[in-house]
Amino acid sequence: MKHEDLFDIFVEWEYTTVPSHAVRKFACVSDRDEFYELMTDIPATWAWFMPERTGVSAAEAASFELLEFSVDGESRPIRRSQRKTGQTYTVSVGDDIVHAGRSVRIRHVCRTVGAKSAHRLFTELPAPTRGLSLELDYTQTDIAHLSVTDAVTSLSKPRITRIPEQFAGREVQVDLDGWLMPRSGFTFVWTLSSEAPAPTKQAGSKAA
């Protein structure tokens, strides 16, 4: 698949947690069975599934890359391993933090790609979460319209806000104050500018 047919997607997660594992792994795989196996290792491993039919190789850093991982603002070294069906990034949270059972602020930034023709992006929570704020900035894209649907198990209702149209930026934000259960998620569905219907002439207007 050509690069012009793909979106570059940057994902930043920041959250406070009490780590239960001293090592975190971020894996991108093309084998479905391997993906399901990795999903049983949450929260120690976060897995991305990139099937071969997309024409994008799950094993290449150009397709998926962990750019940064920090604990309480301190960056941690990242190790990468590669195999035929995918790749894995490994970082250390710290045995001392796990043994102490104390809460820390974790931040990690990933870069991946997605086909424009897929018309949707789904994000899912791997663990119970309280107080979610999710932002999607699609300013520098050829997306004409973006909608949001949720698959949320929570007593609270998500609040969805957008930057007013008169401003240059295009961004949608989802906020939820209560608890969300694992596997809760949000789907962003888009229409490209080339797919948007042509504007209709107003009634009573005359052709030039």
Results as ranks from 00 to 15, higher is better:
F26M: 09
A27W: 00
A27T: 04
A27G: 03
A27I: 10
C28T: 03
V29S: 04
D31V: 05
R32A: 14
R32N: 05
E34D: 09
Y36H: 12
E37M: 07
M39E: 11
D41P: 01
D41C: 07
I42W: 04
P43G: 07
A44H: 02
W46L: 14
A47S: 15
W48N: 03
W48H: 11
F49W: 11
M50F: 06
P51L: 12
P51R: 09
P51G: 05
R53F: 13
R53N: 09
T54E: 08
T54L: 10
G55K: 08
S57K: 11
S57N: 15
A58T: 03
A59K: 04
E60V: 05
A62M: 07
S63K: 00
S63P: 06
E65S: 11
E65R: 01
E65A: 05
L67A: 03
L67D: 04
E68L: 10
S70A: 15
S70H: 11
V71C: 15
V71R: 14
V71Y: 13
G73Q: 13
E74W: 12
E74C: 13
E74M: 15
S75Y: 12
R76K: 15
P77G: 10
R80Y: 08
R80D: 03
S81Y: 07
Q82Y: 02
R83M: 03
R83I: 02
K84V: 02
K84A: 06
K84M: 02
T85Q: 05
T85D: 07
G86P: 03
T90R: 08
T90L: 07
T90Q: 12
V93N: 01
D95N: 15
I97S: 03
I97L: 14
I97D: 01
I97H: 02
V98F: 08
V98D: 11
V98Y: 08
H99E: 13
A100E: 15
G101E: 07
R102T: 15
S103G: 13
V104N: 14
R105M: 11
R105G: 06
R105K: 15
I106V: 15
I106P: 07
R107V: 09
H108S: 10
H108V: 04
V109C: 00
V109E: 00
V109G: 01
C110Q: 01
C110V: 06
C110F: 00
T112N: 01
T112Y: 01
V113T: 05
G114D: 02
G114L: 02
G114V: 01
A115P: 02
A115R: 13
S117V: 11
H119L: 08
H119Y: 11
R120G: 11
R120S: 14
R120N: 15
R120Y: 15
R120T: 11
L121N: 09
F122M: 06
